[in-house]
Design a protein around this nucleic acid. Structure first.
Length: 264
DNA sequence: ATGGTAGCGTGGCTA
């Protein structure tokens, strides 16, 4: 079962490219971030035509997440439990395939947190606390569960093209790195980290020719409980999706690329 | 040198 995360940076502006990726990658489950539209405006039929169930936790203008599954889904949750949030940044559901074991999947769009310090940084820290608590609670259930998404955290210096320039940034500050480390120390496994030997990025800024210079960041992750990690067979990053020369020409690429795992 | 990119929505915020 293939499970993917993709920050699309507006699902409406990106639709031809997103659909093209869905047809090629054919994920069983995909979580999308920054859809930037309300539930009613989500292009539901386009994904249903490809065979997906569609669950949306949308928001006008900013943020917004979606959950797409070829298999039946149950227990859909919007937002983190116990965390009042005007911003739509988390969606979760239990995927119940006919011919595979169930897996619970969370779709995450972590606050950026810049500038730090400041109210946006404080919001990121409080969001991290709620997410970590939720991940701890889910871990205790001892079921196959993973949180896939845009964590907006660079794990270590190999995840950024110029670490020294990013020391004070909310994506790379010690507190952010410690937060991700704390999630891993609970018992979660970062799937791509575990299976890919070489360095990789998942985001390249639109500015400054970042793609051509390979000035990237590693900020999209999939964190798996032991019960999910036991089923981990493969993981990957669809880097080509960021290339303006590759794929449909009707739309520009997102600044993020899809990241995925295969579970048995 | 205080720009430079993209999306939303039509001025300025967010990333």
């Amino acid at each position: 079962m293939k499970i993917a995360t993709f920050n699309v940076n507006s699902v409406k502006a990106r639709l031809p490219r997103v659909l093209h990726w869905f047809e090629e990658a054919a994920p069983d489950v995909a979580v999308l971030q920054e859809i930037k539209c309300v539930d009613e405006a989500f292009p539901r039929e386009a994904f249903e035509d490809l065979g997906y169930h569609v669950e949306v936790h949308g928001q006008k203008t900013y943020n917004g997440v979606a959950f797409l599954s070829k298999h039946p889904v149950e227990e859909v949750q919007r937002g983190l439990p116990g965390f009042e949030d005007e911003q739509s940044r988390y969606i979760e559901a239990l995927v119940v395939p006919d011919e595979a074991e169930p897996v619970r999947v969370g779709g995450l769009y972590m606050p950026n947190g810049n500038p730090a310090p400041g109210p946006k940084w404080d919001y990121k820290l409080s969001f991290i606390e709620a997410l970590t608590q939720h991940m701890e609670d889910r871990l205790a259930a001892e079921e196959a569960f993973l949180v896939a998404g845009d964590y907006n955290i660079i794990p270590d210096p190999t995840g950024v093209y110029d670490p020294d320039r990013w020391r004070e940034d909310a994506l790379f500050r010690p507190e952010a790195r410690a937060a991700l480390r704390r999630m891993l120390n609970l018992g979660y496994t970062s799937a791509v980290h575990a299976l890919m030997a070489e360095n990789y990025y998942t985001f390249w800024d639109y500015q400054g020719g970042a793609w051509k210079k390979n000035n990237g960041l590693q900020i999209d992750h999939l964190l798996l409980t032991p019960e999910a990690a036991d089923r981990l067979e493969a993981a990957g990053v669809d880097t080509d999706v960021r290339d303006p020369e590759v794929g449909p020409s009707e739309a520009k690429p997102s600044d993020h690329v899809p990241v995925w795992v295969e579970l048995s």
